[in-house]
Computed example of a mutant assay.
Amino acid sequence: MYEYRRLTPAQRIEVVQQRLAQGYPPHSPPHPIRDQLFYLLTASCYEHQPHMRCEKRRKQVLDLLFEQFIAWGMELRGWVILPNHYHLLVYVNDFDQIGRILRSIHGSMSRQWNLEDKAVGRKVWYYYSDRAIRSERHYYTTLNYIHYNPVKHSWSDSPYDWSCSSVHWYLEHQGREWLRDSWVRYPVRNYGKEWDDFAKVEDASR
């Protein structure tokens, strides 16, 4: 979104034409892979504004995510809710329901928060994106990436310091040694910087 703004009008037209030629929507993230069991889902607040700065709102979003995904027979395997975006590692049994679930949650939260903040009509959420999980290594690296995200974005000094994260569930049910071993075996490194290149490497390693 931000890179697009820095393009010239001619460059913007070229980018949109390239996306349309690939069958992608002109501006929103494409969802080309729809037949996998696990996905990394990411949703951001518009302009990356910290509308979830207070823990109450982060917990509210997390509760709704659990409620809605469970209602559709899906399962959250990893999560982190930050002040301006969130990541989910989800077992998916019906890809077409993902958009409906997130639009419902984002719509209800937008209305409530705009009333609370006296900002009726404000745009709160941007589009969500999804990344298909292609291998066991990709799965656990994604989980580690999710747990490390509060540190990556300087919201906390340690993954364990951030409350709205699945790291605490894994700490309770798998133990610190399991988490430490997973971190060593599946390091995050530059995960997230070159999504498509990472996916190609993962496909080649299967």
Rank of each mutant, 00 (worst) to 15 (best):
M52D: 06
V151E: 01
R185T: 01
E172S: 06
L115G: 04
A10D: 15
W155P: 05
G23H: 08
I105E: 00
Y170H: 12
L62F: 04
L76F: 07
G73H: 12
P83N: 09
D181R: 04
Q97G: 12
R137F: 06
S205M: 00
S163R: 11
F69A: 03
S154D: 15
L7H: 10
H85N: 07
H85G: 10
R176A: 09
H106C: 13
T8P: 04
Q17S: 12
H173L: 01
Y46D: 10
Y140H: 02
H85K: 14
V16M: 02
V92Q: 02
M74K: 08
Y24D: 08
S205L: 09
W162I: 08
R122S: 11
W113D: 02
E55C: 01
K118M: 13
Y4N: 05
Y139N: 04
C45H: 07
P150G: 01
C54R: 06
Y46W: 14
Y39D: 03
T141N: 00
S110D: 13
V61L: 10
E47T: 15
T8R: 03
K56T: 08
V16N: 03
T142V: 02
L88T: 08
C54P: 00
E194D: 15
T42A: 06
L88D: 11
D196M: 08
H85I: 14
L88F: 00
D63P: 06
G99N: 02
Y160S: 08
L62K: 00
D35A: 05
L115A: 12
Q68I: 07
G175A: 11
R189F: 00
V16F: 02
H51A: 10
A119D: 14
Q22T: 14
S44H: 14
L20Y: 14
W195L: 00
Y46R: 11
D130C: 07
G107L: 13
W162P: 02
N190C: 08
M74P: 03
D63W: 07
S158Y: 07
